[in-house]
Amino acid sequence: MKKQILNLGKALNKAEQKKINGGRPIKCYSNPNCPPYGCCIVRGNICEVIDENDDYCF
């Protein structure tokens, strides 16, 4: 049973993991789904503003 569970799906590369997890914070203006200000995390097509002052972006 354990081998069957461990064999489900495939391993994801870093780019695929970032798509699922939202990746790191970005400057909102760099994504068309986001407002033109602040620092955001994008998950799929949803943009979440985490800091309007842009203090936490890399």
Rank of each mutant, 00 (worst) to 15 (best):
M1S: 08
M1F: 10
K2E: 12
K3S: 11
K3V: 09
Q4F: 13
Q4R: 08
I5R: 04
I5K: 10
N7G: 06
N7Y: 09
L8S: 01
L8F: 06
G9D: 07
G9F: 05
G9Y: 13
G9V: 09
A11W: 06
A11P: 05
A11F: 07
L12M: 07
N13S: 14
N13V: 15
N13R: 04
K14N: 13
E16I: 08
E16C: 07
E16D: 13
Q17M: 14
K18S: 15
K18P: 03
K18C: 11
K18F: 15
K18M: 14
K18E: 14
K18Y: 14
K19D: 07
I20R: 08
I20G: 00
N21L: 15
G22H: 09
G22D: 07
G23E: 09
G23D: 03
R24S: 15
R24E: 15
R24Q: 09
P25S: 09
K27S: 09
K27I: 15
K27T: 12
C28M: 02
C28L: 03
C28I: 00
C28N: 02
Y29R: 13
Y29I: 14
N31V: 10
N31W: 11
N31L: 05
P32F: 05
P32K: 03
N33G: 05
C34A: 06
C34G: 06
P35H: 00
P36F: 04
Y37A: 01
Y37T: 06
G38P: 05
G38M: 02
G38L: 02
G38I: 02
C39W: 05
C39I: 12
C39A: 03
C39V: 06
I41T: 02
V42N: 03
R43M: 10
R43L: 11
R43S: 12
R43A: 12
N45A: 05
N45T: 10
I46E: 14
I46S: 14
I46P: 01
I46H: 12
C47V: 03
E48D: 15
V49A: 02
V49T: 05
V49Y: 01
V49P: 00
I50F: 04
D51Q: 02
D51S: 03
E52M: 01
N53E: 03
N53V: 01
D54K: 09
D55W: 07
D55T: 13
D55E: 12
Y56T: 04
Y56G: 04
C57T: 12
C57N: 11
F58W: 07
F58D: 08
F58G: 10
